[in-house]
């Protein structure tokens, strides 16, 4: 007979799992219903029909939006790593600018998008860069860059200084030691930062909604458009939602282990 506390533990976890999984399950089932049966909550099981998936994947612009989102996320993360990694090293090793700087980085990430969006829009509008992916990349850098840097600071903190010192004695300059030893040694951290940065970019709708239109829309903006067609489009919306959700969820599985170290940055020792 298990102890009541153990029983309670199991119950809590089961309940949590059920409430997490049920929405996904229901959406998945809905995406497999023929269009006229999507709006029938009283039917728990309907024979699967791939019509919605076929429509979304092959007969709509969704693949293009996926490509847009992929492109924006990849470029944003690449720039963020290129700029963020040396900065993270400097912040971790020399505390450049004092202890306040690393929190300034965190604060930058927390800046309400509303503060940045108006001027960003105006600037890009004057440069005639709205409705282009460049605009979204620049906008996404406002939060991906600080997050990636904040992540990497934590990972560099965990790396013993002696590693670079050894490399410098072994014949490298400080900078080549950074390239040849520090960067490869924090590869898991870089991976985690990249995946997390990508997820943030992939998931953003606010900036993309304001800065893109037509062919330059990203996936979340496109998904937001589905509801306007009312009931009959629900099945396609469900399929499109799953398209946006599944890859990120898979990425997240590999990310978990490093996520806490990264989010904690210089603040939480784990």
């Amino acid at each position: 007979m298990p102890r009541p506390a153990t029983l309670l533990t199991g119950l809590v976890v089961l309940l949590a799992l059920a409430s997490v999984l049920f929405p996904f399950l229901w959406i998945a089932l809905a995406s497999l219903r023929p269009p006229h049966l999507v709006a029938r909550p009283d039917l728990l099981w309907v024979a699967p029909d791939p019509a919605n998936w076929r429509a979304v994947l092959f007969e709509s612009d969704v693949p293009r939006y996926i490509l847009n989102s992929l492109l924006v996320g990849t470029v944003t993360v690449a720039v963020a790593l290129l700029v963020g990694a040396p900065a993270a090293y400097s912040l971790s090793r020399w505390r450049t600018g004092g202890a306040g700087t690393r929190f300034a980085i965190l604060a930058a990430e927390m800046m309400p998008p509303a503060v940045v969006i108006v001027p960003l829009f105006l600037i890009l509008w004057h440069l005639q860069l709205t409705n282009s992916l460049v605009a979204v990349v620049l906008a996404h850098l406002t939060f991906v860059l600080p997050v990636v840097t904040w992540f990497l600071v934590g990972f560099v903190d965990d790396l013993p200084r002696e590693l670079e010192e050894q490399a410098m004695i072994d014949g490298h300059t400080r900078f080549t030691a950074f390239l040849r030893v520090v960067l490869p040694a924090i590869r898991p951290g870089i991976g985690a930062a990249a995946v997390f940065g990508f997820v943030l970019s992939w998931n953003d709708m606010f900036y993309a909604l304001v800065l893109t239109g037509g062919a330059s829309r990203t996936l979340p903006v496109a998904i937001a458009g589905y509801w306007t067609f009312r009931g009959i489009e629900m099945g396609k919306m469900a399929a499109a939602i799953l398209v946006a959700v599944v890859p990120v969820t898979l990425a997240a599985f590999f990310l978990q282990k490093h996520l806490v170290r990264g989010l904690g940055g210089g603040a939480v020792k784990t």
């Binding site: 992939w202 979340p220 919306m237």
Partner: peptide
């Protein structure tokens, strides 16, 4: 791993999912 899934989902999708549910 399963419990953590919602935080990785794009919020607009979450919103639409619940609007539907």
């Amino acid at each position: 791993a399963l419990v953590l899934v919602p935080m990785f989902v794009t919020p607009i999708a979450v919103g639409l999912m619940f609007r539907f549910l």
